[in-house]
Simulated scan of single mutants.
Amino acid sequence: MTAHPRLSINQATIKHASLADALRTTADAGVGAIGLWREPVAEAGLDTAARMLADSGLRMSSLCRGGFFTSKEGPARRAALDENRRAIEETAALAAAGAPGSAAVLVLVAGGLPDGSVDIAGARTRVAEALAELEPEARAAGVTLAIEPLHPMYAADRAVVSTLRQALDLAEPFAPSSVGVVVDTFHIWWDPDVLPQIARAGAAGRIASYQVCDFLTPIPADALLARGMMGDGHVDFGSLTAAVQATGYAGDVEVEIFNAEIWAAEPAEVVARTVEAFERTIAIEPLSTTV
């Protein structure tokens, strides 16, 4: 089966593959894009990773991840912001190395509550302050900071930003080219306000990434691993994809799955299954601008 021209394999879906293997497996399957993670890039070294990406002929659809900047002012917060500055530099370098159509998009996961805190409003305020500090540097580098709202079950430990509305409110003070949002089906499918918020994001030009996977039940002991292949769970991909397409979103569509059984399978098998499931469930039009 020929891969959809807008399909991107997020590295998390084939988590145990090295960067070299992930690039090769994705390209060999006829997929045109890959979403990279900073840890495998760091293992290879940024310069080497950029060369590997260039040699693969793949587009980069995003780099994951930055964020985790909800700490109160002090050394930990300064270290987190400096780490995000490095992530901005990495995103720019990798996007420049990727094939035409690569996206200089840095996915941001806000971070949860600091240890011992119950002040979620304060944590969200610190996210806004971090964006204000980092946005000029992202703008100068040509990088889009993409705020990813996470399902509310992760609000305490991973992301105090839980809805697309909250993410858009945080992005609104900044130019869409420098601060956007991630629409991830796993995290937002449940939200009764999601379709108008997707339209709002599109009208403002703020959809920096569209990520897809399914929501499985029963939720496993490690809730991070509740993601599944499209069509295996509860997400209505038809309505969500139609809403994203109606905005004119022209980027790649990443499949990002955290699932122990999928991780245990051979990467080539997972990519082949992803190509098939994407074709069956994600009815998004190819674009002449996608190469």
Score class of each variant (00 low, 15 high):
T217I: 13
R126M: 01
V235N: 01
R6E: 00
G116H: 13
G101Y: 08
P267V: 03
S8M: 04
G111L: 12
A121E: 14
V244K: 00
P114K: 10
E133F: 15
E269V: 11
L53C: 05
A96G: 07
R200W: 08
A104T: 09
A87G: 12
S177L: 01
L170C: 02
A103L: 13
P40I: 04
D28A: 15
S178H: 06
D184W: 00
P136D: 05
D157T: 15
L287V: 02
D232Y: 00
V31Q: 01
E261I: 09
V107F: 08
H234S: 14
A12F: 14
A130E: 07
S102H: 12
T48H: 15
L168E: 07
D28Y: 08
L225Y: 07
V41K: 04
A49L: 12
F174P: 08
I219A: 05
V255A: 12
R200F: 02
V275L: 08
E261W: 11
L287N: 02
I147W: 08
G248Q: 09
E276T: 02
A155G: 04
D191V: 06
R126T: 02
D214E: 02
V179C: 07
A268P: 01
M153S: 11
C213F: 01
V253P: 12
Q166C: 07
W189N: 12
V291D: 04
A44F: 14
A44Y: 14
W263D: 14
G45D: 04
P75R: 01
D191N: 09
A130Q: 08
Q211K: 02
P196M: 03
A283F: 06
R24I: 07
D191K: 05
A79N: 09
V107E: 12
P220N: 00
E43H: 04
V118T: 15
A243T: 06
V235S: 01
R65T: 11
T247H: 10
S71R: 09
A96V: 03
N10A: 14
G57F: 13
A12Q: 15
G98H: 10
